[in-house]
Amino acid sequence: MQIFVKTLTGKTITLEVEPSDTIENVKAKIQDKEGIPPDQQRLIFAGKQLEDGRTLSDYNIQKESTLHLVLR
């Protein structure tokens, strides 16, 4: 499924993921596309910060959901 990741600069990254993918996994995909190390990434969905060990389905993230990427 496709999800979108919006950065603070207003750029939107499109990722191909599975509901069973972990947040860690998603961060690795963002690193592949954008070169941002996962340890600098914070992903936010519905106002919650997403934890590395959880999966997209844990957070009920469905196709075409938009996550927000904050760098630390």
Rank of each mutant, 00 (worst) to 15 (best):
M1C: 02
Q2R: 07
Q2P: 05
K6V: 12
T7K: 08
L8S: 12
L8G: 10
T9K: 06
G10D: 09
G10A: 13
G10Y: 06
G10W: 07
K11H: 15
K11T: 10
K11G: 04
T12Y: 05
T12W: 06
I13M: 06
T14L: 12
L15N: 00
E16C: 02
E16T: 14
V17W: 03
V17G: 02
V17P: 01
E18S: 05
E18Q: 07
E18P: 04
P19Q: 13
P19D: 12
P19K: 05
S20C: 02
D21C: 03
D21P: 00
T22P: 14
I23L: 11
I23Y: 01
N25L: 11
V26Q: 00
V26G: 00
V26I: 10
K27N: 02
K27Q: 03
A28E: 07
A28H: 11
K29W: 09
I30F: 03
I30M: 06
Q31V: 08
Q31K: 12
D32A: 13
E34K: 05
E34G: 05
G35M: 10
G35Q: 11
G35I: 03
G35K: 09
G35W: 07
I36D: 03
P38M: 10
P38L: 13
P38K: 11
P38W: 14
P38A: 12
D39K: 09
R42C: 03
L43G: 00
L43T: 01
I44D: 14
F45R: 05
A46V: 09
A46I: 12
G47C: 03
K48G: 14
Q49I: 06
Q49F: 14
Q49G: 08
L50P: 01
E51R: 04
G53Y: 13
G53W: 13
R54K: 06
R54A: 14
R54P: 08
R54G: 13
R54T: 05
R54Q: 05
T55A: 08
L56Q: 00
D58F: 12
D58S: 12
Y59T: 02
Y59K: 01
N60V: 11
N60D: 08
N60L: 06
N60C: 03
I61G: 01
Q62G: 13
Q62D: 14
K63L: 14
E64T: 13
E64S: 15
S65C: 02
T66K: 06
T66I: 11
L67R: 01
L67N: 01
L67V: 09
H68R: 05
L69T: 02
V70Y: 04
R72Q: 09
R72M: 13
